[in-house]
Structures are given as C-alpha cells and as structure tokens.
Amino acid sequence: MVNLIIDGQHVQAEEGWTILETARYYGIDTIPTLCYREGLTTDSSCRLCVVEIISRGRSRLSASCSYPVQEGIEVRTNSRRVRQARKIIIELLLASCPNSKTLQCLASQYGIKELRFKVEDRGCILCGLCVRMCKEQMQAGAIGFFNRGVDRRVAMPFHVRSDVCRECGACLYICPVCELQCRGPREPGDLCNGCFEAIRIDPFPSRD
C-alpha cells in the first residue's frame, strides 16, 4: 500500500492507482474531468484535472488522471493555484466551444464572470473521447485525429464515410459538448452563470 496525503487527509492507495482514482475512492470529489472516462485509456490532454503535488519540498501541477500515487507525497486538489489554472483552462475551452452546457456549468462553478479570450466557435474541444470510445469500446476505429496544432480536428479518414462505422452513436453519447446547447447565453462568448446565481455558494470552497 502507498501512503499519501490528499487535501489534508492521510489515505492509502494500491500501487498503480492514479491520484484521481484514489481521490474519488475516498469521496474527494473536487477534481473535474473532461477527457477522462473509466473504461477508456487515459489521454491526459484536457489538463482540467490538474492538482498540486508536493514532494520533496517542491510543488508542481500535474494531471491527476495519469499520475500514479507515490509514497509520502501531498496532493492538493483544490488549492488557489489549482483553481487558477483550471479557470484559465475552462476559459480557453469556452473560447473554442462557447455554447457547451458542460463548459458553461464548469464556468459557473469556478466563478468565471467574463470570457477574456477571443472566441472562435469550433463546436469541439478535441478531448478525444469519441475517438477512443470508437476504437477501444466499439472496436471500430472509424474516426481519428487529423492535422496538427490549432488545425487539429476529429474526422473520418479522407472525410469520407467509413465502412467500419456502424452508426452506433457511441461517439455522440460520450461527447461532453454535442448535447443540448446551454439555454443561457445568446451570443457566443456570453456566459450563463445561471448555476452560479442559483447555487449562491461556492461548491468547491478553497482549502488554502
């Protein structure tokens, strides 16, 4: 067993568990995720699950979904530094996918009141869940990434309908953004903040 501290609690984890798994096992539910899903391989690409890891007197941010537990480390899942990083990441994602309900809700939770980045609506956050779902669970591999960097997109090979696609809809099912659009904002870039107003309390009070 590996001993570590998460948000002040001394916990034990099995060798090979990730920090995210351990935190959730202990009911610590302050780590949001987008590209992580049980049953699929871990990509660590959305970076929303970053946590502060303190080991040997040094603190750094790392994605908890892939970081294996280590003896004696201290993890802060919701420190000011972590929240600040997540806020920027949510803002960045909203700038590329402004009407996603998932992202709007996250924005409310993290107290984001204004979108400071230039909005370019792509309707996709490139989390890659659909690609992994199709390949790993549906054994099809009908879709994949193409292009590099800012031009990266999800598509079928050569933009032609693939024979291996069975139209099972698993990609739609797992997509965190192609759902009913958030009702709140009118213009791309507007923030709904409905949940924020309704809840009125910070659901994730900082532990600093």
Partner: peptide, 21 residues
Amino acid sequence: LCEESCGKCVPCREGLKQMRF
C-alpha cells in the same frame, strides 16, 4: 510554437493560440 504544437493538450493548443492573438 503555435505552428509546431501537436495540438494534443489544451493549454498548449488553445493557450498558445490565445497568446498569439
């Protein structure tokens, strides 16, 4: 770097793009 980023993770792909803007 924006041109050369692989585009896998959000901070590098989206962050560099916004820094460029």
